[in-house]
Write a protein that binds this DNA or RNA. Structure first.
Lengths: 196, 196, 196, 196
DNA sequence: CATGAATGAGGGTTCATTCAT
DNA sequence: GATGAATGAACCCTCATTCAT
């Protein structure tokens, strides 16, 4: 009677390595993300990494993937939840969810957004943006009274990008702006924009 | 009779190295930005770099500085030029100037925005943003009828960040949006926001 | 009721591993001859190899042994068969048998002769040569009229070595020489030599 | 006044590395021929190797080339010297020169012939053989009375290969055969062969 | 016996930096 | 100042071997 079947053990190690990778990234930064360091953090030998990942880049990819997916899931969940609400509240709730998601792992966000060559996470982020744009479009099409902008694809592109960036920068740079102010302003911006 | 006093010669070399660094970045990408490569591109020996820069990072910093300053100057000039204009046109003209400035060296923008660890250019970019925010604030204070937002510092933070990001992404990602559309949308967003 | 006593099972596994080793050698070359690869080819786990062989070298040794023995057996058989024949035909037949034996597994010959450190197969090859020299000496002593050379041990050393090398190189390098030409020349060389 | 112009210093280092490579090969064998070991033997740091050689293989190649060329030169010189002599003496002298050349660095011959994957030195050796065959052909064409063999290209192939191999093995294996015996036998073999 | 995950020393190579010339 | 050869720590990765299961 095996407590941990092979498959599960393997998953466990992958998780351990990914966690170690995340830790190294957060603690020591991207430049210190070496295979030796990750292995040490995972409490295994360097060679063992290669039983679970083809190379160093693959480890990093999974760490970033995990993070991106997690963030995306939270936002998507909030969007799905709130889509039914009244116009302005919807925006506010979604942005709130996004900010919360970004705040959930500010340390890693810091590394991902500021230390990583952006190219490495670009594909993932664009997938996320695509996903969000899809949801937003659906919403806007369903409630045309919420937007007077002529080309929905363009408005969603603009909106999603602006929100994403403002939220990210707010979380990272912690400017002298309260969370409520931020939400107010973003709501004002989005509604002012869509209805202008 | 020295034609080029030491100071001047030194400046010349710094420029040459910076130009070489820029070239390497644009031609070969950030990963190829090695001291050897930069020295070769500058036509000097690797050791000589260290007479003008303390280390490799310092070279990169100046390359980015140059780029940022140059971009900032163009935008600031446009802002100074147009500040007198009518409300909406001012925004449009400034954004137009920003997009032009970003397009002026798309190759380097690509490297700076997507290959470099963002942190490296962060300080410089924030200086630029600060500068722009200053101008914008002055403007808004001078013409209070253009904004109904309660906290000018917050509105400028939001506005500047949103514009910067949208312009950058538009230049880099070349989405299926015309330049005029982009300007229209940004103007709509900003004016809708400030007046809501 | 055990069908395969331990001893037999063990022999079976050794054979399987040796066969796998041979296969790896022939298919992927000496550089790919890793314990992992051999184990995979044998359908067993890397660790199991060490139940049958003390280390990687030992596997290779046996693979080469098998090959050498096999080749030796064919040649020895031919020699035993033809020893009774007339002088020149004997040589021709033996060389013919040798060439055939070498051609039988040209792929492995290629690896053994050109990729392996020669030292690894040296002992085995010398054993073979010894065996052939023994047969040849016996023959020459029995028929002294076939050789005018003063020291039989020397003549056999020379003859065996020359024949072995010429046959091997002919098979491997496939020079622009027909098989009959090769045999003719070797016969001419040996008879010319022994009778001079 | 520079004692050692750049070019010369560079050559010096190359020589030093090649010598170190040779030393490692001879002292520790092919398996120990690692860049670290070669660098240590050369008294330089591992990184310095790469200022003079693109990779490890290139070092090895030059070591072998040096050896092969040196050997080839000696033999070619002897051939050029003796070509004018009387038939049998020519052969004897050339073989003598070959044996001397091989004996000159028996330690390295040992490594090159027995530890290296033959493929690595094959091209070089074939070039040497080609060169010798060329000389031999010229000779045989000039003095047709020295050979009754029908196809000169074939006879030279056979002769050169046989001599090379016998000489090499004699030097390496040091069988119980005197040098004079060896020369006698080879002369007997070659003359017996060519005139049969 | 069989397994195969884990090991870890060692491999080849790069490159920011130094320093004797 | 200028040079560029030399450095050497650190990089990523491999694979023969072991040992807990």
């Amino acid at each position: 009677m095996r407590k941990t079947p092979r498959q599960a053990r393997s998953r466990e190690m992958v998780e351990r390595i990914v966690a170690a990778g995340r830790e190294v990234l957060v603690t020591d930064g991207y430049d210190a993300f070496s295979t030796n360091r990750v292995a040490a953090a995972a409490g295994i030998s360097p060679g063992s990494l290669y039983q679970y990942f083809p190379d160093k880049a693959a480890i990093l990819d999974v760490v970033i993937d995990r993070y991106t997916e997690q963030t995306a899931d939270r936002v998507a969940a909030a969007m799905a939840d709130r889509m039914g609400g009244a116009g302005l509240d919807v925006v506010r709730d979604i942005v709130d969810a996004l900010v919360s998601a970004l705040e959930a792992d500010r340390a890693l966000l810091h590394v991902v957004a500021e230390q990583l060559p952006l190219a490495r996470s670009k594909a993932r982020r664009e997938a996320l943006e695509q996903r969000v744009r899809g949801l937003a479009s659906t919403y806007l099409i369903a409630r045309p009274e919420h937007s007077r902008r002529p080309v929905p694809a363009v408005s969603t592109w603009v909106t999603v990008l602006a929100i994403e960036n403002l939220a990210t920068r707010w979380v990272l740079d912690q400017p002298d702006i309260t969370r409520d102010q931020l939400l107010d302003e973003i709501v004002a911006m989005v509604s002012g924009y869509l209805l202008s």
